[in-house]
Design a protein around this nucleic acid. Structure first.
Length: 293
DNA sequence: TTCCAGGAACGAG
DNA sequence: CTCGTTCCTGGA
């Protein structure tokens, strides 16, 4: 288990001894869409119908608007605090010099364990768009179809809508939420998820089986399926191949990484069980440094 | 103005 | 099955 010291005071949680965690790295590496930076450098976000604010201050992390019970039942797992990233980073750093740099650059990345349903819809909405637009679209949908949670720092927060709430909509109604042609996929997938009923148990299945099921949802292709498995089902070997990954892999390994399939194959051989972590370090490094553009 | 963005569906060959 | 085209729409 982790050696984090947790204390509670005044609706705040103080964490001491947290290693390998920086909110900037974790929230800006493309895995989540509902965390926003505040003026003071802290981050406020919504997940599991709760709003919290995180601020890293030297060696301690302050979690505001959070009680001890919620931290233990929700956030400890959400932030993957039970996992030792030191071992992963050391292993990846030895794979090659560029990965070593990428790991050092994004040393505070943790892979979040997000809600499956929210992750499915969020990544369906992500296709063919940049992150700021994706965030706008998701916020619009939450504001319109999600339940009101409360106000924090003078801003109103809404939960991610339930499958029932979205399944009742038509694609035309979702058009107001800047979903574009993806609106149809969202409604169809919401209905399919209601039929399936058990997406919360998918993570117990074999990765290949999960992938087959996810690819059956409208608007879910190989890249989105890998993101869902990695960011909400703990399938940490999954290596989503997006345009940034294509760019940096082609730049780093021009001989072995010509197309999507060769990249996936090469990553599987090179990073194995740590593929998902490797993808996040590379993505953040490539994007923040505009590598391959 | 024009072009493209952190992909997937679809039809043609 | 593999490949090329098309799909909203905001922002550079």
């Amino acid at each position: 288990m982790s050696d984090i010291k947790v204390t509670e005071q005044n609706n705040k949680i103080i964490l001491e001894g947290v290693h390998d965690f920086d909110p900037v790295h974790t929230f800006e590496c493309g895995q989540c869409f509902r965390w926003n930076r505040e003026q003071d450098g802290s981050y406020t976000g919504v997940a599991f119908s709760k709003v919290i604010n995180l601020k890293k201050d030297g060696d301690i992390v302050i979690v505001d608007n959070c009680c001890l019970a919620d931290f233990q039942s929700i956030w400890h797992d959400y932030f993957d605090f039970g996992r030792n990233y030191g071992i992963i980073k050391e292993a990846l750093s030895q794979s090659d010099p560029v990965m070593e740099k990428a790991v050092r650059f994004g040393h505070g990345i943790r892979i979040l364990n997000q809600d499956e349903w929210e992750t499915i819809i969020s990544f369906i909405l992500s296709q063919n768009r940049s992150i700021p637009i994706i965030k706008q679209s998701i916020e619009a949908i939450c504001r319109k179809y999600g339940s009101f949670i409360g106000t924090y720092r003078n801003r109103e927060y809404y939960a991610f809508p339930t499958p029932e709430a979205l399944a009742q909509r038509t694609a035309e109604e979702l058009a107001d939420c800047k979903a574009g042609y993806r609106a149809k996929y969202v409604v169809e997938t919401a209905k399919a998820v209601l039929q399936a009923k058990d997406i919360g148990t998918y993570r117990q299945l074999d990765s290949g089986e999960i992938e087959n099921r996810l690819l059956g949802f409208s608007g879910v292709g190989p890249k989105v399926a890998n993101c869902i498995m990695l960011f909400s089902m703990k399938k940490t070997e999954r290596f989503p191949v997006d345009v940034w990954i294509k760019r940096i892999m082609a730049f780093l390994y021009p001989d072995n990484c010509r197309n999507e399939n060769s990249i996936s194959k090469y990553a599987a051989e090179k990073y194995g069980q740590y593929g998902g972590f490797a993808q996040q370090y590379l993505f953040y490094y490539a994007r923040e440094n505009s590598i391959g553009r």
